[in-house]
Lab assay of single mutants.
Amino acid sequence: PKDEAKKKVKEAIKRGDEETAKRIAKKYNLDWDDAKREADEER
């Protein structure tokens, strides 16, 4: 599900692992900028 994928993307971003985050986002066709902004807001 997309929500689960987005959570994984945000967790990867918070760990500083943007490569993984981008790969997950691409795989699930998520909006990378959107997920990154959300992760930054939660930090």
Results as ranks from 00 to 15, higher is better:
31 D>I: 06
17 D>P: 00
2 K>S: 12
39 A>R: 04
26 K>W: 08
21 A>S: 05
5 A>E: 04
31 D>W: 02
5 A>Y: 11
24 I>T: 03
8 K>W: 15
22 K>H: 06
3 D>I: 09
12 A>S: 04
7 K>A: 12
23 R>A: 15
19 E>V: 11
2 K>F: 14
43 R>G: 13
31 D>F: 04
22 K>W: 06
35 A>W: 05
40 D>Y: 13
31 D>N: 13
1 P>V: 14
12 A>P: 00
2 K>L: 15
27 K>Y: 14
7 K>T: 10
33 D>G: 08
27 K>W: 13
8 K>L: 15
32 W>A: 01
23 R>D: 11
39 A>E: 05
24 I>C: 07
33 D>Q: 09
28 Y>V: 02
29 N>A: 09
35 A>L: 15
1 P>R: 14
10 K>W: 13
35 A>R: 01
14 K>D: 08
27 K>L: 15
34 D>R: 07
4 E>H: 11
38 E>W: 07
37 R>S: 07
12 A>W: 08
21 A>G: 05
13 I>W: 04
28 Y>K: 01
41 E>I: 10
26 K>N: 10
41 E>T: 10
24 I>Q: 02
16 G>E: 02
8 K>G: 04
19 E>Q: 09
9 V>S: 00
1 P>G: 15
18 E>D: 08
3 D>H: 12
15 R>H: 06
36 K>N: 06
25 A>P: 01
25 A>S: 04
30 L>H: 01
12 A>N: 04
26 K>S: 12
32 W>R: 00
7 K>Q: 13
6 K>I: 14
36 K>V: 14
30 L>F: 04
42 E>M: 06
37 R>I: 07
12 A>L: 15
36 K>E: 04
7 K>D: 08
32 W>F: 15
5 A>H: 08
19 E>A: 12
32 W>N: 01
30 L>A: 02
37 R>T: 06
26 K>E: 14
15 R>E: 05
43 R>T: 13
13 I>S: 01
14 K>W: 15
14 K>T: 06
16 G>F: 03
32 W>D: 01
11 E>V: 03
16 G>R: 03
25 A>T: 03
24 I>K: 01
11 E>G: 03
17 D>W: 07
35 A>Y: 09
11 E>P: 00
9 V>N: 00
32 W>Q: 01
36 K>H: 05
13 I>N: 01
18 E>N: 08
22 K>S: 03
16 G>D: 03
6 K>Y: 14
22 K>D: 02
5 A>R: 03
6 K>Q: 08
42 E>K: 06
28 Y>W: 13
2 K>M: 14
8 K>F: 11
38 E>S: 06
30 L>V: 15
1 P>Q: 14
41 E>L: 12
24 I>S: 01
36 K>I: 13
9 V>E: 00
21 A>C: 02
6 K>N: 06
1 P>I: 15
11 E>R: 05
8 K>N: 06
10 K>D: 04
28 Y>R: 00
26 K>V: 09
33 D>C: 11
